[in-house]
């Protein structure tokens, strides 16, 4: 494995999904969305999306329903903190798989 061929003489990379690795590996708590409380789901139209706005990993998709990409979600819990209706619960990974 030789790296000289990359031609870089300083640290360079191109922005892309997962450039820093699959940060989902870091997660201890998983966000679980309750659709009955989630505003865009209840209203059936694009609205709220504060979780999407605040997610530092851009791991949340603005959709109905709202989806979280668990390959990159670090489990920081900011979405749960910011959700105005308390629709997101942070659940321990073990409980999640058991459930």
């Amino acid at each position: 494995m030789h790296t000289r061929d990359c031609g870089n003489i300083s640290g360079v990379s191109f922005p892309s999904i997962g450039e820093a690795g699959k940060t989902g590996d870091w997660r201890e708590l998983t966000p679980v969305i309750d659709p009955l409380k989630c505003i865009p789901v209840k209203r059936h139209k694009p609205s709220c999306f504060l979780c999407w706005l605040y997610c530092p990993e851009a791991a949340i998709k603005r959709g109905i329903p709202v989806e979280i990409d668990l390959e990159y979600c670090k489990g920081c819990g900011i979405c749960a903190e910011e959700c105005p209706t308390g629709a997101i619960a942070m659940v321990e990974e073990n409980n999640l798989t058991a459930g």
Binding site: T3, D5, S13, E19
Partner: peptide, 28 residues
């Protein structure tokens, strides 16, 4: 032409988004 410059560079070489094997810290 957006690039990350002098980004966090891990100990070992790894591929960039285009599949090119890039230097780790020691190589740089």
């Amino acid at each position: 032409a957006p690039q990350n410059l002098n980004l966090v560079t891990l100990a070992n070489p790894r591929q960039d988004a285009h599949g090119v094997m890039c230097h780790g810290y020691m190589e740089l």
